[in-house]
């Protein structure tokens, strides 16, 4: 294992009940790297993140996190190793206020952002801290879902479609935040449909198809392989 390798996924198969969704996913992420999982709808990207978090049904294969095998761990143990998960559906709790949502995830490591820093980064959340979480607008809910895993000291962030369905100015803002996080040395897996959002941010891109990695494209190959990528994504 190379010293800088933070996440290594090998032969990952995952099931929902009887449905076999992932058919041997293989990829690695280096410490401080931002990779993107691209793919068409239903390709298995969300399932890959959920499998990493222990949220699918049966899983086989290997998931090494910072040198530790986590495939058999329950999801709270995985999170406690320093993984922050931002789900596709955002997962804002209606029974909690904005601030309670923000403060919910317990610390899993040192060096997370403080609540003040987060409110500075996302002023809307500060203004609406006492509102019910689900009363926020879609963009605010997305910011909240992202902000609450930045507080915990998690070093690996699994972000599922954070730009989906949001106004361009908010997408812009989120891209800035990701750049900021990269500069703070977070390791990030960015699942995206919107490759225009992901491409400038990702150091490497993996295209997922039918529950497998179809190809890998590094940032510096992007210009030359744009046609191939667009065909794979069907855009």
């Amino acid at each position: 294992m190379s010293a800088t390798e933070y996440l290594r996924v090998e032969r990952l198969h995952a099931f929902y009940g009887e449905s076999h969704i992932l058919h041997g996913i293989d990829f690695t992420v280096r410490r401080g790297e931002c990779v993107s999982l691209l793919g068409r709808n239903g390709a298995g990207r969300t399932t890959t993140l959920r499998a990493l978090m222990g949220l699918t049904g049966r899983r086989t294969g290997s998931i090494m996190l910072n040198g530790r095998e986590i495939i058999d761990m329950p999801s709270h143990r995985i999170a406690q190793l320093g993984v922050g998960y931002c789900p596709e559906e955002r997962g804002i709790y209606s029974g909690l206020t904005t601030e309670e949502n923000l403060l919910l995830p317990p610390r899993v490591g040192s060096g997370g952002l403080s609540v003040e820093e987060l409110y500075e980064m996302f002023p809307n959340l500060a203004e609406r801290r006492h509102s019910q979480g689900t009363r926020l607008s879609g963009g605010e809910q997305q910011m909240l879902a992202l902000a609450r895993i930045l507080r915990t000291g998690a070093r690996l962030l699994l972000l599922d479609e954070i730009s989906e369905g949001l106004a361009p100015v908010i997408v812009q803002k989120l891209a800035e935040v990701i750049r900021d996080l990269k500069s703070r040395d977070y390791t990030i897996v960015l699942v995206e449909q919107n490759f225009r959002f992901a491409a400038p941010l990702a150091d490497r891109m993996f295209v997922v198809e039918h529950g497998q990695i179809a190809t890998e494209i590094a940032q510096d190959e992007l210009a030359g392989r744009m046609g191939e990528l667009q065909t794979l994504l069907g855009v």
């Binding site: 709270h76 999170a79 789900p87 709790y93 209606s94 919910l104 899993v108």
Partner: peptide, 24 residues
């Protein structure tokens, strides 16, 4: 705070556990 864990686990146990809270 403990109550917010309880409310969260009531509403969405799987996600709450994925935040590192020992829901079981």
């Amino acid at each position: 705070r403990l109550g917010s864990y309880l409310r969260a686990a009531t509403e969405n146990p799987a996600l709450t556990q994925a935040f590192g809270i020992n829901v079981p």
